[in-house]
């Protein structure tokens, strides 16, 4: 994945899912987790979720809002939205190229 996702190591893919989840609006940890499971079809562990959240927050891609009871919602920042858009466009180009090549090879 491109920068800054490349720096995130094993948290790159979970981070992308989290950003996509937050692009629909602020969510707290449990809501992100269930939403990501719905999007990706695979469960995301709590350790992975918070490892990714800490990194995204540190990089200014998401920000924490005031806690509601013990839950703390997060939302996408402007930088986060721009980064996500660039990342998705890059993936979109990658997917199109891959599909086009496959269709060229098809008998």
């Amino acid at each position: 994945m491109n920068q800054p996702f490349g720096e995130l190591g094993r948290f790159a893919e979970p981070s992308l899912y989290i950003l996509v989840s937050l692009s629909a609006g602020p969510k707290h940890g449990y809501a992100i987790m269930t939403d990501v499971e719905e999007i990706s079809g695979a469960p995301m562990g709590p350790g992975t979720l918070y490892g990714a959240l800490a990194r995204l927050e540190r990089r200014g891609l998401i920000e924490a809002l005031e806690p509601e009871d013990r839950r703390r919602p997060y939302r996408l920042t402007g930088l986060g939205a721009t980064t996500l858009q660039a990342q998705l466009q890059s993936l979109d180009g990658f997917v199109r190229t891959g599909l086009a090549r496959l269709s060229e090879k098809a008998p």
């Binding site: 707290h28 940890g29 449990y30 709590p46 979720l49 918070y50 009871d69 013990r70 703390r72």
Partner: peptide, 10 residues
């Protein structure tokens, strides 16, 4: 930083 919300999630 994260203990409260993490425990809430669990």
């Amino acid at each position: 930083r994260y203990e409260d919300e993490f425990l809430s999630l669990l």
